[in-house]
Design a protein around this nucleic acid. Structure first.
Lengths: 141, 141
DNA sequence: ATATACTTAGATAACGATTTTCCATTACTA
DNA sequence: TAGTAATGGAAAATCGTTATCTAAGTATAT
């Protein structure tokens, strides 16, 4: 996996640096869809000199080479996802956590849109909103 | 129509002002999903003293009383839509215009998600991205 | 109509996420 | 290994949005 990102960066003319590898590792090992701030905090112990600007510059590069996707769930900040496969997301309006939605059937919906819109379709994002199980329990108590 | 918003504002304890009516009229008479800046510019001639702050305060009130919905298509700014019925949106990655997608079948998709997620669903937003017909033509030339 | 009480509009400053700038440092190439 | 172009980090800038403050407006009771 490490070799893949190394090769990808080099092929696209980007230099391979420890910071870039570290930021990608954080995303690749997380299901929490971290924001820039979260990535920054998580790397703080191991990379105390790294700045937020580096995080932002790096995620933009990672997106450009197709290793991650950028989510905009309507919060004040973006979130980053190393899983670039087509899948939907759901955000808890109570605690803000963002989860993946796998195994839901959207292909028919997308196909219908592609057929009916005069646009040339290049992508889509589906965001759901609700209350997560943990927050539902909290409310009862 | 004017009476409806007047009554709605008053019922909810908001005062009825010319600015609020004007901002709602702009949204009700547009299919372009204007941003705050666009609303502001459009009203500039008729309301030269109105400030952007008033636009933001007003759209928040309009959303609160259910007259408009707020869209986050992934641009740098929000867009506002006086059509609060459930429908998807598509944005041109070239020129930035945002169009409605009516008559597409999403009910099955939503139902499938509701069944499979442990969240209690409260809403969803579907955004499509692509190249609009006008920009497709531009590219050929 | 007029006074009163309360809300609002507008100007301005504040805010916070993101982006840019600049330069010392680093990664790659010959 | 030296040279060169790209990068990381610190700080400042940017920009959409929000909060603050006060004069002016709206609604209600006279």
């Amino acid at each position: 996996m490490e070799e893949q990102i190394t090769a990808l960066l080099r092929d696209r003319g980007f230099k391979v640096t420890p910071q870039r590898l570290a930021i990608y590792q954080v995303l690749a090992n997380s299901r929490a869809h971290p924001s820039a701030e979260m990535i920054f905090s998580q790397l703080q112990p191991a990379y105390p000199t790294m700045s937020l600007a580096t995080v932002y510059k790096t995620v933009e590069i990672l997106r450009e080479i197709g290793l991650i996707q950028i989510l905009n769930t309507g919060e004040d900040s973006f979130r980053y996802d190393a899983d670039t496969s087509m899948h939907s997301h759901i955000r808890c309006l109570e605690c803000g956590r963002v989860d993946d939605l796998y195994d839901v059937e959207s292909a028919g919906f997308v196909k219908d849109v592609a057929k009916k819109t005069p646009y040339r379709l290049t992508g889509q994002q589906f965001y759901f909103y609700g209350i997560c199980p943990a927050c539902q329990d909290k409310k009862i108590n």
